[in-house]
Structure formats: structure tokens, C-alpha cells
């Protein structure tokens, strides 16, 4: 048995949040999200929380659990090694109801850094004629940051976010670095103009809390510090080569043919 202390807030009834306690029979293997579902299904149907995939992919169930922002689905109840588990909504956002916070500032800031590939030739984007070549080493320069779930844990952990509404935040800065480090991308100047501002890169002072809480090892702190260096000293960017797509290749003699696909592509689709 574990006592769940859950912060409740109903905007239609309450003027401020309060805590409510539930008893959950915790077993080995239950995540905090499983416990919340137990409460919702058997104890109190009015409890609101957001969740979707239950496996650390969608980033919906970010909450403040026992003193750290974490994903409820990736936190094992027994791993907390305590009988009282406190679940609160993420700090530094607005609470909509109970454990549900409004993540729209996160998405708005994410959008501000243009998180997409801005190609050198716009024509190539609309009507691609060739393929980009990227080596595994070039891929690994940004791959780590591409695993971002947009769960918003890093903004809840960041001390600057605690007061500065305008700060663009670790998530967006990491994504700016991710696209700036992509050899297919030519939008460096545009993104640097967005992040090299009073409320951009320079509001980070390497507290490292974002890197500590990131459930995917994205490490926004690393991206931000590397980007500071690039913003100050500039960088030489490698450009991905464009090559003709491989077609009509005749395999060398002695190489066996690939087996027939077991699932046939349906006709008409394509």
C-alpha cells in the first residue's frame, strides 16, 4: 500500500489547489501512471491527468513526482522507495485542471526557432531532384537532440523559467541547435537571430537541471552551451552533398538477390 498525495484543482470550484490522499495497492512493476489509472478507475473518477502511450514516447504524462519533474509512465512506483508519493502538476506552467497543465507556451517557443529544415535551395524542398548524403558521423552531431518528446519537463526544472516568462527555454534552444547542426539545413542565421537575444541563449547559466530531468537523454544544457560558443565565435558549417538517387544499379556478380517481400504492396496505393 502506498499513499498518493495528489494536488487537485478544479477551476470551476476551487480558488487554489489543495491536496487529496488516496491509498493504492502498489505492486512491483507498477508505474506512477498505472497508479493514477487505478485511482481514476476505482477510487475517484474526477481526477484529471494527461496520458497517452504509456511508454515514454508521447511525452503527455509529465508531472512533478516526489521532488522532480518526471514522466509518470517511466517512473516505477517502487523505485521511489517511499510509501508517500506526492504527485503535482509541472511547475512554471498554468494549471488547467488537477495534473493537467497548459503546454502551449512550450509549443509556441518551439515554433519560434523554426524547427524544420530550411534548405539552401528552396526549389529542392518543393520539387526534390536529388538525395542528401549524410554520414553517420554527421547524423550523430544532432541525433541526440532529435529525440526530444516536447514533454516540457526541462522548462519545469529550469530556474530561469521560474521567473522569466519571456525566456525561450531549454527545449526550443536545444531544437535550434539540432537544426543548426544538420548538414542539410541552411537556416543558421535565421535561428541565431531568434536565440541571440536578451531572452534567448544568454538567460541560461548552466544550472543543468534540464539535462538532469530529460527522460530521453536529449541534454538541452549541452546543446545550449555548444550553441553559445557558435553564437560568439561562429562556425564552419559542412554542407550535405546532393547526389542523384541510385536507380538502375546492376549488382555485382555473386551477390544474392534480396528475398521477396512477405507483405505485398497493395496495388493502386503508391
Amino acid at each position: 500500500m502506498a499513499n498518493f498525495r495528489i494536488q487537485r484543482y478544479d477551476p470551476e470550484k476551487d480558488s487554489r489547489p489543495y491536496f487529496q490522499t488516496y491509498e493504492v495497492p502498489v505492486e512491483q512493476g507498477m508505474s506512477i501512471l498505472d497508479c493514477l489509472f487505478y485511482i481514476k478507475e476505482r477510487l475517484d473518477a474526477t481526477l484529471s491527468f494527461r496520458a497517452s502511450c504509456r511508454m515514454g514516447i508521447c511525452g503527455s504524462c509529465a508531472m512533478y513526482i516526489n521532488g522532480l519533474p518526471r514522466l509518470a509512465c517511466e517512473t516505477q512506483a517502487t523505485s521511489l522507495a517511499t510509501d508517500t508519493i506526492e504527485v503535482r502538476p509541472l511547475p512554471n506552467y498554468e494549471i488547467i485542471k488537477d495534473l493537467v497543465v497548459d503546454l502551449s507556451p512550450l509549443f509556441e517557443k518551439h515554433q519560434r526557432v523554426r524547427p524544420w529544415i530550411i534548405p539552401y535551395e528552396l526549389e529542392e524542398l518543393d520539387r526534390p531532384t536529388k538525395e542528401y548524403v549524410q554520414s553517420p558521423a554527421e547524423l550523430e552531431k544532432y541525433l541526440q537532440f532529435a529525440y526530444c518528446l516536447k514533454c516540457g519537463l526541462c522548462l519545469a526544472a529550469c530556474p530561469t523559467m521560474a521567473t522569466d516568462n519571456e525566456f525561450i527555454g531549454p527545449q526550443a534552444l536545444a531544437q535550434a541547435f539540432r537544426y543548426n547542426s544538420d548538414t542539410r539545413d541552411g537556416g543558421d542565421a535565421e535561428r541565431i537571430a531568434v536565440v541571440d537575444t536578451l531572452h534567448g541563449l544568454w538567460r541560461c547559466h548552466m544550472a543543468g537541471a534540464c539535462a538532469e530531468v530529460c527522460p530521453k537523454g536529449v541534454d538541452p544544457a549541452l546543446a545550449i552551451q555548444l550553441m553559445k560558443r557558435e553564437a560568439v565565435f561562429g562556425k564552419k558549417k559542412e554542407r550535405a552533398r546532393l547526389v542523384d538517387p541510385r536507380c538502375g544499379v546492376t549488382p555485382l556478380p555473386g551477390i544474392p538477390k534480396a528475398p521477396e517481400p512477405t507483405v505485398k504492396r497493395s496495388e493502386g496505393k503508391r
Partner: peptide, 9 residues
């Protein structure tokens, strides 16, 4: 001047 200049100074 860009913020990065103030920072490096």
C-alpha cells in the same frame, strides 16, 4: 550590437 558580444565582453 548582438547580445553575444555583450556576453563575451
Amino acid at each position: 550590437m548582438r547580445e553575444s558580444r555583450y556576453w563575451i565582453l
